[in-house]
Design a protein around this nucleic acid. Structure first.
Length: 110
DNA sequence: AGCCTGACTCGGA
DNA sequence: CTCCGAGCCAGGC
């Protein structure tokens, strides 16, 4: 069940600095699963507590990925704005808010 | 095993 | 810049 994969993903998400965001693909790559952005979505969907800053993960377009329950989307946005992140027309400027890990500098420069 | 679905992404139109 | 289709993975039927 790839519980190990989930653990590695959470470890990466926990490293995202406050007031910054990362994309699913970025997290996947840093966790050691390049190209498996979907796996990250799965891992976060399985979360039940806020021990992991899941709200700092957005899709490659800088938007909050649509979820089954819109209420959660709103909650994520509120949490991000509370950290100072600014939304422009329902999306974030990734070039400006993307988290760049200092350690493994392999931040995708897309 | 086959088929469908989902907090994704990329390349081409 | 937006839309689509295809590729990808784990789970539930």
């Amino acid at each position: 069940m790839t519980a190990d994969a989930h653990a590695r993903i959470y470890a990466v998400v926990r490293r995202i600095r406050r007031g910054r965001v990362a994309t699913y693909g970025q997290v996947a790559a840093l966790a050691g699963f390049p190209g498996q952005a979907r796996l990250v979505g799965y891992a976060l969907a399985a979360l039940e507590s806020d021990a992991v800053p899941w709200h700092r993960v957005v899709n490659a377009r800088g938007e909050i990925s649509p979820r089954a329950t819109p209420a959660d989307e709103a909650r994520q946005r509120v949490l991000l704005e509370a950290e100072g992140i600014v939304f422009a027309d329902n999306r974030i400027e990734l070039e400006r808010w993307r988290w760049r890990p200092a350690r493994e500098g392999r931040g995708r420069t897309r």
